[in-house]
Design a protein around this nucleic acid. Sequence first.
RNA 1: GCGGAAGUAGCUCACCUGGUAGAGCGACAGCUUCCCAAGCUGUAGGUAGCGGGUUCGAGUCCCGUCUUCCGCUCCA
Length: 481
Amino acid sequence: MATDSNKFQAIISHCKEYGFIFPSSEIYDGLQAVYDYGQMGSELKKNIKDYWWNSMTQFHDNIVGIDAAIFMHPTTWKASGHVDNFNDPMIDNKDSKKRYRVDHLIEGFAEDVRNAGDAAKADAVLASMDALLAKDDFAGLKQLIDDNKMKCAVSGTCNWTDVRQFNLMFSTEFGSVSGEGEDNKVYLRPETAQGIFVNFLNVQKTGRMKIPFGIAQIGKAFRNEIVARQFIFRMREFEQMEMQFFIRPGTQKEWYEYWKAERLKWHLSLGLPADKYRFHDHIKLAHYADAACDIEFEFPIGFKEVEGIHSRTDFDLKNHQEFSKKKQQYFDTEINQNYIPYVIETSIGLDRMFLLIMSNAYTEEDLSTPEKPDSRVVLKFPAKLAPIKMAVFPLTKKDGLPEIARGIMDDCKKSFRCFYEEKDAIGKRYRRMDAIGTPFCITVDHQTKEDNTVTVRHRDSMLQERIPIDAIKGMVLGAIA
RNA sequence: GCGGAAGUAGCUCACCUGGUAGAGCGACAGCUUCCCAAGCUGUAGGUAGCGGGUUCGAGUCCCGUCUUCCGCUCCA
């Protein structure tokens, strides 16, 4: 465990040192749980996105993509349940560390008082609470709790923190004039799913989609996490890759199982180790789900959720129909019936997938020989995800070798990301490429001038082979396909 | 949010009981070697996270604050 914790630290340092991830606005001390992707990180992230997007939209005839706005009509979040469920004032007991919703605590107290026979007092307390809640008077609520000596059920003490509002959703003012009250308030979306649901009919009709079909989306979401930590694992601003699959009611069990299997296959198709994956089935289900599981991966910090597969029933579309007064139904010509489709959701955290790829790739190798100690840090990315696919090195800076190397570079860089370097000893250049996970290094030497062959040095095995210049592009393209 | 630990150069760290900041690696320029890092020469880079206090003097002691990691808690 200690070594794993060290490994996590090492990965964080490595991400910083080689331009994968920086703390946001670091020169101002950073911003809690917000990170920037650097020159290498943004490439890796983009490659992960592309791989997911293509596997969804290109390889499935019945899945299409959209890109919805981050701002959505405020009613969206009422329909989804986010406003009601996640905007409550909370209070913590300092002894038991238990956190309560203030209204639950006070209602519980009132209930006890009523049971003890003092109905008048119970009503008075509840009336005060409602008045204070309506005014968002947190100090008053605290006073009410103190005055009535309300106790924590666990610790039995009255040692409370202040009343605080935990807003899961970030809000901002819409329009250029601020301060016009609640009417102007919009939220930054706390999940991307709703952008798909509100566009369900648009896509279904304009795309002439037939159930079952899916809508995929990659985009940012924002959650004001109370505790956000563990590097990029839990961030306040993060990116999701989601697919909502619309199905006939009653078929959700089979489609749920189908997507469970399908999504795990996707992970394994990247050559990731199956023994580091596991499913975690939810026992306690969210308000919208009738079945749910997580795909967990064994990070250096333990098994953690990377992706969720949820059977969301018709909860979202039904609520949007109710709130918008617009029918969210589909006419199924096979059975001649109108219905609100059921939904299976697959939702993977892009940043978590990034961390997964990074943790799995990060390897420290001891290359010592009896003659001298030696080691390297190598990122064993799947070739198709590597930020840079190929590096080209002239063995020396002279004798026309750089010109040949530049030629190879120019020929290949239209097809994939290449890197050119002529500084330092060849071994050092190899090691630098190891550190950013470049799968292939091409070295041009004097023999190249005679027979047009070069050395290919493979990242993981460190083995070398000679191939004709003509074969380079095909080899790399084959590996990243 | 509670508790613990930490913040000094890009990275890893040193500076013992307060006396004006140092190493290794890395980077950059050049030389040398030329198929797996650490050869030679030179260079750059830190108001010690930030703010305040104690002191003749603070990286070092005290307080606050920000950030990070660990444990607990939370995570629709």
